[in-house]
Each structure stands twice: as C-alpha cells, then as structure tokens.
Design a protein around this nucleic acid. Sequence first.
DNA 1: CATTTTATAGACTGATTAGTCAGTCGATAA
DNA 2: TTATCGACTGACTAATCAGTCTATAAAATG
Lengths: 186, 186
Amino acid sequence: MDKIEVILKSALKLFVGFGFHATPTSKIAKEAGVANGTLFHYYNTKEELILALYKHTQGQLSTYVQPKVSKEDSLEMVFRSIYTNTIEWSVENKAESAFIQQFSSSPLHSLISPEDMNSQAAILLDFIHEGIKTANLKHLPADLLQTLITSHISGVTQYLLAGEFSKVKQNKIIKESFELLWDMIT
Amino acid sequence: MDKIEVILKSALKLFVGFGFHATPTSKIAKEAGVANGTLFHYYNTKEELILALYKHTQGQLSTYVQPKVSKEDSLEMVFRSIYTNTIEWSVENKAESAFIQQFSSSPLHSLISPEDMNSQAAILLDFIHEGIKTANLKHLPADLLQTLITSHISGVTQYLLAGEFSKVKQNKIIKESFELLWDMIT
DNA sequence: CATTTTATAGACTGATTAGTCAGTCGATAA
DNA sequence: TTATCGACTGACTAATCAGTCTATAAAATG
C-alpha cells in the first residue's frame, strides 16, 4: 500500500476521533507506521496535509457518484441518482463523510480555493439551473435550492448513520426521503 | 460586565475564527482582558470551558425561541414559530450559530450528556410526536422528521448568511421556505 | 556501473501550550 | 485594628508540538 494512502487513512481516522488540532503529527506517523519526517516529505505543513486529505476525500465521493450519473437520463433520474449515491457513499464511508462534515464547518474551510471547491456541488448546481429553465423545478433561487437539497441529503445521512438499518430498510428510507424532496422542489 | 461573560464571549469569537484547539487559552485570556489564571479559576480545563460555552450558547437560542412558542397555537403555528425564530436568531447571531455548528460536527459533541442535549431539539420532537398522532404530519419516523426539519433550518440559515439580504427579503425567504417544508411534512 | 534523485528514518529543537501555584488585593466582618 | 475570605493575578513549568536536520537506503537515470 502506498505510503501516502496510509498516511491519509491514518490522519482521517485520528482527525475524526480527536479533531485536526488535537491530533499531533507524531501520532499520525505512528498510526501510519512511518517516521515523523516522512510526513513532512510529502506535506510541508500539517495544514497542507489536512487540505490534501479534504480534497482527496471529496474526490473519492465524486469518483463514486459521477460515473453513475448519466446525462441521458431524465432530470428526475439524474437528481435521484446523485441523491441516492451520495447518501449511500456517505453511509458506507462513515469516517470520510464525518471528516467532510467536520472540515466544512471548521475555519479551515475558508482556505480551500473556489476551483477546488466540491465538483459535486458544481454539477448539482448545473442540473438545478437546467431544471429551473425547463420549469421542471420550482422557480426559486438556484443556490437556495442547492442548499436545501444538500441539507436534505446530509440530514438523511445523519439519520441513517445514527440508527442501525438493514440494507433493505435503508434503501426504503432513501427512496421515500427522495420523494419528499422531489415533491418539495418540483 | 461579568468576567465569565467576557471570557465566554472572547472564547466564542476566537473559536469561530480559528477553531477550539488552534485557540490557546492564553489568547482567550488576553482577548478577554483577564489574567491567564482567571480562566482556570472558573473552568478546570480548557475542555470544560468549551463545553460550558456550548451549553451557554444553546441556552441563549432556547431562551430566544421558547417564550415565543405558545402552546395555545395550532400545530402549524407552533412549527412556524420555532422555524422562523430559530432562523432569525441564527442569522442575527452569526458567530453563535457558527460555533454551534462547528461544535456539533466535532468529536467533542459526543461528550455532552443526553440530558444537556439541546432542549430545543426535545421540544421539537414533542411537537412532532403530537403532529404524527393527530395525523397533522405524515406518518414517518419521528426522528427522521426531526432530522429533516433541523437540516432544512440549517440549510436556509446558511443560505441567508452567505448572501446579504434586506430584512424584507429575508422574511420572504423564511416564509417561503417554511411553506416548502410544511408541504413536505404534512 | 556510477551518479544523481527520491524516499525514509528518527533524533532533535525552539516555540508554544495547558495548567499550577504562591501570593495580592479589596471587601466584609469580628 | 485585625482576621478571614475568595476572586483574581501572572510568572512559571513540564509536556507537547510542528517542523528541521543529518544520515542512509532505494530507485531512477544515463
């Protein structure tokens, strides 16, 4: 396994458990089974490591979701696909989604440049614009719709993570909650 | 002004700006204009201070919202009132709501005892149960509804905080977004 | 094969941190 | 006048931290 992978994985685990700043780089190195200095060979500062981890994790989500979204489908299917797959990934990757959440509401979030900002969000926004233009969606500010959708997704994710649900039950909740959302925005 | 008040206020400001762990107690003391030791006269550890600040801030929100909710009103009015006032407080108290958000998605959140947990949430959950029983609300798991409502609120709050809206525009958004939510859950 | 570049190690350092402690100060009361 | 109290102080310390440095080993290059 690639050392960078191990380092990021260890950092993720510790960050989620204790928070960025309460996690010393020395502990990350130990957890990863590498020397202290190796960390700083790949990342010049701890902050750089944190930002890299965020981008990396965001990237994993995108890589999971985006191939599953087909431009050919109806707008509803596109939304449904983004919705379902985002939630599924988040539930299956608990630590990763917890980290994204934690990072997003931390002051560090302001440090990531707009172009690095969440390709996920950009795609969603595109579809929203299209949906408004074609009058599939309610005529509301696009970024309000985006925020509502994103919040809805993170709400359902939290709900699914809090309880222990069978795969079947989980899919049912995802499906039903999507109908709620879809009815709300169309 | 009470020293404790000044300390909490300073801590809040710095925590929101830099994060809990990236904020040294010495800076909090300096910002508050008190001696280093004074902090530890009131709170035995830094963690104790952070937890106290969370409870204090949560309390402020409750104190703002709860008196405005009248048991006499219809269920819709109760929800509307909780919804509207929570968002209004959050927008007017940007730092405070940012802190609640930040704390809630941090590992420290697991340290607060269930009884200290958000009297706000408990009240909302009561009304949800009532709403389900009287069939005003859709027949869905109560805590799913709660999560959806809470997420919706924090979404709209984020939206309002991101842009600069006039009081009139803001109220319009709150009103319209409530109708969306209400239609969704009834 | 020789040489240069990259990867890894871990001991080390200077700065910073949470928390301590011995004592000051003003108020209240004996 | 003296004693007692407790809020408050700030210099201090032991521990910890991010990041550096030197040394080696492993790859890559030519």
